[in-house]
Design a protein around this nucleic acid. Structure first.
Length: 469
RNA sequence: GUCCCCAUCGUCUAGUCCGGUCCAGGACACUGGCCUUUCACGCCGGCAACACCGGUUCGAAUCCGGUUGGGGACGCCA
């Protein structure tokens, strides 16, 4: 009977690129909202001007777009909403729920240290709380937090969480420079944007009672909270740059498919029985906050890689060919034919874990000149197979057709005449054509390469072997 | 230090709410084999966990208490 429209938000602060932890929070918000037919709002929390930048804001938006996490409203910029925040602060002041505090930062710092030394929680002592002071240069506005009682909420993933109000102190709502603090800005924005569900990282659990107290002081309805566990690095500490690839865009550049990342992020902390792979539609349909686990999880890069390989294997040649182009260009390839790429992709699909892999593996198809792998050269390009290579070159030169079926027939005759097994020439041939010891099947390789290139490469390898002798 | 949260294979997890069907299932990784012109794909198999201690109970991964361990929060950062 809940007729109220669900409104969620994702509020990254543009002090860094969107990392996979943030992306997962965004994903959970998005899945929840799309399932319920709600509204998803993007809000950039750029109040820390010193650490925010346009560049990171762009990177965050680019990341969201790449992942396909679309929003219905925004992006709002918190720094442009100070007027709204101030209305709420004034309201609190006028109802006596907040007060001006004249304590200096030094004084507060001393108090915190003293409390820590005594083994207590560092809290503001409430010195100015009942002094009835007015605004003054350097003064701040604080919330009058209840000294007794408890503040609790029913977290949608963690269950009931409660705090004694005496653990909380009178938090600052407005800084001495007049700007609102994080807690105030978040609450003011969430109220004014009509946010009904706050789904965020569980590093915010401790912030929640403080924010609830602001809602209460304001007499505004409190949203539902869901705190999702954090993502940890393999060493079980908070994920950071020193753990390698953490930004969403880094995964894009390494050749991951957005859906593979999404799928992998969804399964980190959330599950649906034994199912591992989900389409976007299934994710939306099956996601639920109560199936989100309560404990932090380590990001499993191997599993993501495996998923990526699976999605590559199961994507259409058309799609992959399109996605592959930028990677091929990265290797300096130009004037690529869509059709050729498609053919190459088809042969590389089962052996590529990323698009970057695939591009690398496809180079020999497009390059004019290939180079031989040193080890492959030493091991397989020896003079004892010269005769066989010349023989097959002649036969291929004269072939009336140059497709797989025709090639296989030519080889059957070739092998019979020479009384050998394919094994004997397969590797030397592979090295001659691709430069490497591992590649797609030689018949498919030959067909895609075409007669001209195949014969050229055979001629080249023959001279090469001769020159070594 | 204080407060909050968490605890099943190396990792992600199912099972925990409503104790028995779980000497614990799946996935990744690792590993043995099959397939095979290479590398992969695929297929078959293996290794591997209920943190610990007490309690409740005929019976506990599942309920209760404690211990230990981990994470988070304690800013005029967000």
């Amino acid at each position: 009977m809940n007729q109220e429209k669900i409104v969620t938000r994702f509020p990254p602060s543009p002090t860094g690129y969107l990392h996979i932890g943030g992306a997962r929070t965004a994903l959970f918000n998005w899945l929840f909202t799309r399932q319920k037919g709600g509204k998803f709002v993007l809000r950039i929390e750029d109040t820390d001007k010193a650490r925010s930048s346009d560049e990171t804001t762009k990177a965050i938006i680019e990341s969201m777009e790449w992942l396909g996490l679309d929003w219905d409203e925004g992006p709002y910029f918190q720094s442009q909403r100070y007027d709204i925040h101030n209305v709420f602060i004034e309201r609190l002041l006028s109802t006596g729920q907040a007060y001006h505090c004249h304590c200096s930062p030094d004084e507060l710092e001393r108090g915190r240290k003293a409390a820590m030394a005594k083994g207590l929680k560092p809290k503001y002592d409430g010195k100015c709380r009942d002094l009835g002071l007015g605004p003054a240069p350097g003064s701040v506005v604080r919330l009058k937090t209840p000294k007794t009682g408890i503040t609790q909420f029913n977290d949608l993933v963690k269950g009931r969480i409660r705090f004694d109000n005496e653990e909380l102190d009178d938090l600052i709502l407005r800084r001495s420079d007049g700007s609102p603090t994080y807690h105030m800005a978040v609450v003011a924005d969430d109220i004014s944007l009509g946010i009904t569900y706050v789904i965020r990282g569980d590093d915010h659990v401790n912030n929640t009672p403080r924010q609830i107290l602001i809602y209460k002081a304001l007499g505004e309805p409190i949203p539902q909270y869901a705190h999702v566990p954090m993502i940890l690095a393999p060493d079980k500490t908070r994920l950071s740059k020193r753990h390698g690839a953490v930004s969403v865009l880094a995964y894009r550049d390494m050749g991951y498919l957005p859906h593979a990342l999404l799928n992998s992020l969804a399964r980190l902390g959330w599950s649906y029985g034994d199912q591992e792979k989900f389409t976007k539609e299934e994710l939306i349909e099956k996601f639920s906050l109560k199936n989100v686990g309560k404990s932090a999880g380590v990001f499993n890069a191997d599993k993501l890689l495996d998923l990526n390989a699976w999605y590559i294997r199961n994507s259409s040649d058309e799609f992959l060919a399109r996605e592959l182009i930028p990677f091929l260009q990265q290797f300096g390839l130009k004037g690529l034919e869509q059709q050729k790429i498609k053919e190459a992709v088809a042969t590389l699909k089962p052996r590529s874990k990323t698009l970057l892999d695939m591009a690398e593996g496809a180079l020999f198809y497009f390059q004019e000149e290939i180079t031989y792998d040193k080890k492959a050269d030493d091991k397989f390009l020896k003079s004892d197979i010269l005769g066989l290579l010349e023989d097959i070159r002649d036969r291929l030169e004269k072939a009336s057709e140059f497709n797989q079926a025709a090639l296989e027939k030519i080889f059957v005759a070739f092998l019979e005449d020479n009384e050998i097994k394919l094994k004997k020439v397969a590797q030397p041939l592979r090295v001659a054509l691709t430069g490497k010891t591992a590649s797609p099947g030689i018949f498919e390789v030959m067909e895609i390469l075409g007669r001209k290139k195949v014969v050229e490469r055979l001629a080249k390898v023959i001279t090469h072997i001769r020159s070594k002798a």
